[in-house]
Simulated scan of single mutants.
Amino acid sequence: MMASPALALLEFHSIAGGIEAGDAMVKRAPVEQLLSGTIQPGYYLVLVTGEVADVVEAVDAGVLTGGDCLRDRLLLPNVHPGVVAALRGERAPGAANAGAFNALGIVETSTVAAAIVAADAGLKGAEVRLNQLRLGDGLGGKGLALFVGLVSDVDAAVALGGDAVADLVVRRTVVSQLHDEMWGNVNGSGRFGDHFAWPPV
């Protein structure tokens, strides 16, 4: 997804406003990459990567253009590689019998941007891996950062990640020795309907 140090994401509650802001961002600065699109329940995300100064300039343009359509935003000048991997869909293994990964930590946030910030803070501050980063779709626009590791490390990651976005945390928790059957469910898609082949919403 990226080789440059900075990542930013703007989250809009208007699709039209998000498209307009994304256009302003890519016109303002020579970012390495711009990715955008809708998530449920009708929000619009614009993600940019590149050199720090260019990304900062693009974010300024997006915020100015998006105005009151802006729901949340993040700017990570030195994003953790684990966050980038999770955004690509990679997952750290998590199972009750996975040796050092004997705890699951969850930071649930009210916005997508907040979940990414929480994941970055937890990874930078504790010896954990990111099991997965779930964003928006199927979550009513919320985000989930799931950490795995030793209980003490996962405790630290959840505390740091949650504190980084405190006013946007829905709930944070650490589960020690999660049961194998729950690991199977957590490591799946996360959608209840997938157990019964319900069509995606």
Rank of each mutant, 00 (worst) to 15 (best):
H80V: 11
H80E: 10
P81C: 07
G82S: 10
V84M: 13
A85V: 06
A85C: 13
A86R: 00
L87C: 07
R88K: 15
R88Y: 07
G89V: 04
E90W: 07
E90A: 12
P93N: 13
P93E: 14
P93W: 14
P93D: 13
G94S: 14
A96D: 14
N97S: 15
N97Q: 15
A98Y: 14
A98R: 10
F101W: 14
F101K: 12
N102V: 13
N102I: 12
L104R: 02
G105W: 01
G105T: 07
I106T: 04
E108S: 06
E108C: 06
E108N: 08
V112L: 09
V112W: 01
A113S: 12
A113I: 10
A114N: 08
A115D: 05
I116P: 01
V117D: 02
A118R: 00
A119Y: 00
A119R: 00
A121Q: 08
A121G: 10
G122K: 00
G122R: 00
L123W: 02
G125T: 10
A126T: 09
E127A: 15
R129W: 04
Q132H: 15
Q132A: 12
L133Y: 00
L133N: 00
R134G: 01
L135S: 08
G136Y: 03
D137L: 14
G140I: 14
G141K: 06
K142Q: 13
G143P: 08
L144Q: 08
L146H: 09
F147K: 03
G149L: 11
L150E: 14
L150V: 14
L150C: 12
V151D: 10
V151L: 13
V151R: 12
V154E: 03
V154Q: 03
V154N: 02
D155A: 14
D155M: 13
A156G: 11
A157Q: 05
A157F: 03
V158L: 06
A159E: 12
G162H: 02
D163H: 10
